[in-house]
Write a protein that binds this DNA or RNA. Structure first.
Lengths: 334, 334
DNA sequence: CCGTATCAGTTAACCGCTTCAGTGAACCGC
DNA sequence: GCGGTTCACTGAAGCGGTTAACTGATACGG
């Protein structure tokens, strides 16, 4: 009993059927061979327990059958949705997702992107931390690249699925303004602090337009860490009457801070999030938040990608409009 | 200007240095060559922009430098922690995690496992949906396999990181019993319903020992879906005085159901979860839950794996004891 | 001073599959 | 009945590395 049973190769199948290896290769892929031969080859392969060797195949053909997913930070809820979504979308297609996580580090992201290219992924979905890096253009020239959240600079990507952050900011700010808030704090996330995600630009523009005083502060993504920042903001001498958070998990940190300080939401301070995380409706009070349709974005990105790798590119650019999900965490200022 | 600049190969580096390809291969790995040659080769490689081709390397050597992570269901919070944790642990090691998601389907899990083997991963971390499948033993014979949550049947895996579900159940049940509960509903998750995760066996054993009446019901993982099950349970004629959920997200579903039915927690019904999800402390009321030390498990699994692939296996079996995190969602029965 | 290690490199055979160019044979229209 | 296609398949050259076996030097112990 061999401890490590060697797998059957294409040559053995060729021998068993009396064909050449090339013919077997063709037959297994259902091309350039007669129906009858294909059937014979399949039978022999089955018999021998033959299964194609993906690495050899990738080396010879320059294609791997994998779709790369490069997450800026897999800790983010929405990137997890992306990871789950793409895996699910590929079920039954004999394609697999190769998920890599840059852990929030732009340099690592580029290194991983190179790795994915060398790994001969057939396509790449990326939410670039730095969309202006020249590598993206280079990659987009040699394989389908779908970017999420930002258009890549230069290069002709296979598709872009962008969310309209400007509109999202407007929704939130107008909502708060309409309730009477004039002094709001904005907690942006570190993930949003790349040169190209001009969240605070939008915020400042809206604030000016609406005549509101805003202070923009950067906070970590995890609510536990964001709590400290929130505490500082809420303990400031002229406490803002509302806090607009650039992700729901930051908003959770604000909830924790209000609890610690004995403030009521929305009585003492209104809180508005950004994500519509599934948990947000379950909190007390349920969180008002900008819903940028994460599921829709994920589905769109996967669809564009799958179309692109299957050679029938359709829509190149998808923009999903955000909507405001008004719950009970926002109200008039005290 | 070539549209698709061809990458430099090892042969070109050989030519540039006047060495044989083999010597370059050795030099780049820092073996069987003089310091001086290695330096020269490195310089030439740098100059030519040479980078090793991982696929060719994997084909020739039978190793890929990747560690496979096979998640039963990437929707689970703790498996996401695992995915994040392993990626993070590999930063700077020139190793990458290949994350695949079986989407809760045991058949797909096995298919993916085969795929990972064929992909020549250097090691495999798996949380088997069905630990008794013979494939695991076969895999464990040819590469380091670390299983989480269940020991694999047969085969000598590189390591096992198991959580003591029996102890976890005991903690929760004794807590509820101590508060005076005698009629409790147990919502187990579908993920736990494999032949080998005898959650309900433990539950029934404990119930008998403590003299409690339990009804065990299976619920979906997502809280939105679990809510329906919870509604049925809580609307039953003789409503249980406590609900013990086999994951925090199921407990969230119970929260939602109590809200819908106008029941107070823990006044009308006590709720106990299982996970200590980061959100659980933020709910109203904060959730009492069994903390099985997800972070510790993840770290342990990654450590065991890394040790195994680096050829210095240390601990084969790690058991992390759970603890009970008592918050405000449990109290005496009404 | 000889036999034997050791070191630094070389040669060539793979790893298992794909693909390009080529070869008969059958089939086609005219 | 002949030139031209099409079809089904073969042969062999890769894809870009690794590695076992081998070769000369050089070092070393006795």
């Amino acid at each position: 009993m061999p401890r490590q049973r060697k797998r059957a190769t294409i040559r053995e199948v060729a021998q068993a059927t009396g064909l050449s290896p090339a013919a077997v290769s063709y037959a297994l892929r259902g091309i350039q061979t007669s129906e009858e031969t294909q059937e014979r080859v399949r039978a022999a392969a089955e018999e021998l327990g033959y299964e194609a060797h993906p690495i050899a195949r990738a080396l010879a053909s320059g294609r791997s059958g994998m779709i790369g997913l490069l997450c800026g930070s897999l800790e983010d809820y929405w990137q997890q949705s992306l990871a789950v979504g793409i895996g699910r979308a590929l079920v039954g297609r004999d394609r697999y997702a190769l998920i890599l996580d840059a852990a929030g580090d732009p340099a690592r992201e580029l290194a991983l992107a190179r790795r994915l290219r060398d790994q001969r992924v057939d396509g790449l979905i990326v939410q670039p931390l730095d969309p202006s890096a020249p590598l993206w253009a280079e990659l987009a020239d040699s394989l389908p690249v779908v970017s999420i959240g930002d258009a890549l600079h230069g290069g002709r990507s296979a598709g872009e699925v962008v969310f309209d952050n400007r509109a999202g900011v407007t929704l939130a700010m107008e909502h708060l303004h309409g309730l009477g808030h004039r002094r709001v704090a904005v907690l942006t996330s570190t993930r949003a602090s790349t040169p190209d995600r001009p969240a605070d630009v939008h915020v400042n523009a809206e604030a000016e337009r609406l005549g509101m005083a805003v202070t923009v502060v950067t906070a970590p993504q995890s609510w536990a860490e964001a709590t400290e920042v929130a505490l500082r903001v809420l303990a400031a001498p002229d406490r803002p009457t509302a806090v607009f958070c650039f992700s729901d998990s930051i908003a959770y940190g604000v909830y924790a801070a209000t609890r610690e300080l004995g403030l009521s939401v929305p009585g003492d301070v209104s809180v508005c999030g950004y994500d519509d995380h599934p948990m947000s409706g379950l909190l007390t009070p349920p969180l008002t938040t900008v819903d940028w349709d994460i599921d829709g974005i994920v589905r769109a990105a996967v669809r564009v990608m799958v179309d692109a790798v299957d050679g029938r590119p359709r829509r190149r650019r998808v923009v999903r409009p955000p909507s405001l999900c008004i719950r009970d965490s926002t109200g008039p200022p005290p």
